[in-house]
């Protein structure tokens, strides 16, 4: 039998709001006040998110970010720094109670099963992608999606990105790579290791094309019955308070 899930509107928000939305849903779900939830979103302004254990000033050129209007935020998940280009990616989050049938006890196995939604979504566009342990999705040898998972507040959160386009130069400017080292070779090396939907299918693919493919891919890959929904008033209020108390604060973002 399909698993019922709330699908939130495809939203474009800033970095603190995107991260606060996930945590608000988790905290409500922990108390039985939010259903299993799937959301797709973009980042405006473009932003860099770092893993929970990373040092912000170690990884991110904050001066470049401030000068160029790029947000920066610490996630509650592990993994590395990610540049979220407003014009180049869709991010998703799936949040389930930890006793939900789709949540495998093994975190490693969970990655694989939840990533099947993305693989089906890309297949809808004619892209033959596969899971590469531990937490990546690749087309051939090239990465197209990275994913991260946490279990807290009696929930499982998995979020990740699907690349529509790739802006390697800005990515290297945001991340702390010595500027003199941003050579043509480095850029071509990334192009050897990373791909995007438009790389594979051409410029004609829109955000809506990718979004629609992903929604139907998650539905098929994870056997989900999608119900359009919105955040409750209480969830929205907690988003605002989490932005202030955590995701827009230096205390959290610069804590390491």
């Amino acid at each position: 039998m399909p698993h019922s899930i709330r699908l939130l509107e495809f939203a474009t928000q800033n970095a603190p709001m995107n991260m606060a939305t996930d945590e608000s849903i988790m905290k409500h779900m922990a108390k039985g006040n939010a259903p299993p939830t799937l959301r797709f979103y973009r980042w405006n302004p473009s932003a860099v998110s770092i893993g929970v254990f990373q040092g912000m000033t170690e990884e991110v050129d904050l001066d470049y970010c401030r000068d160029n209007g790029i947000d920066y935020v610490r996630r509650i998940t592990g993994g590395g720094a990610v540049y979220h280009d407003y014009n180049g990616e869709i991010t998703y989050s799936i949040i389930l109670p930890k006793d939900h049938p789709l949540v495998k006890p093994s975190i490693i196995e969970s990655y694989k099963s939840l990533c099947s939604g993305i693989i089906e979504g890309l297949a809808n566009l004619g892209i033959d992608a596969e899971f590469r342990p531990i937490n990546d999705i690749v087309v051939g040898e090239k990465k197209i999606s990275g994913n991260a998972q946490t279990r807290r507040y009696s929930c499982m959160l998995q979020h990740g990105t699907i690349l529509l386009d790739l802006d390697v130069e800005t990515m290297f400017s945001v991340l702390k790579v010595p500027k003199e080292k941003i050579s043509d070779k480095m850029i071509s090396d990334v192009n050897e290791r990373v791909t995007s939907v438009r790389d594979l299918l051409g410029e004609g693919i829109s955000f809506d094309d990718l979004y629609n493919a992903l929604v139907s891919g998650f539905s098929k890959g994870l056997d989900l019955e999608i119900e359009q929904g919105v955040l409750s008033q209480s969830e929205k209020e907690m988003v605002e308070s989490l932005i202030e108390s955590r995701y827009a604060s230096d205390e959290w973002n610069l804590s390491r």
Binding site: V52, F53, Q54, E58, G78
Partner: peptide, 12 residues
């Protein structure tokens, strides 16, 4: 000591 990096640790 402060340990940083792009690894995963559960629970965080």
């Amino acid at each position: 000591i402060v340990i940083m990096g792009d690894f995963f640790m559960h629970p965080e």
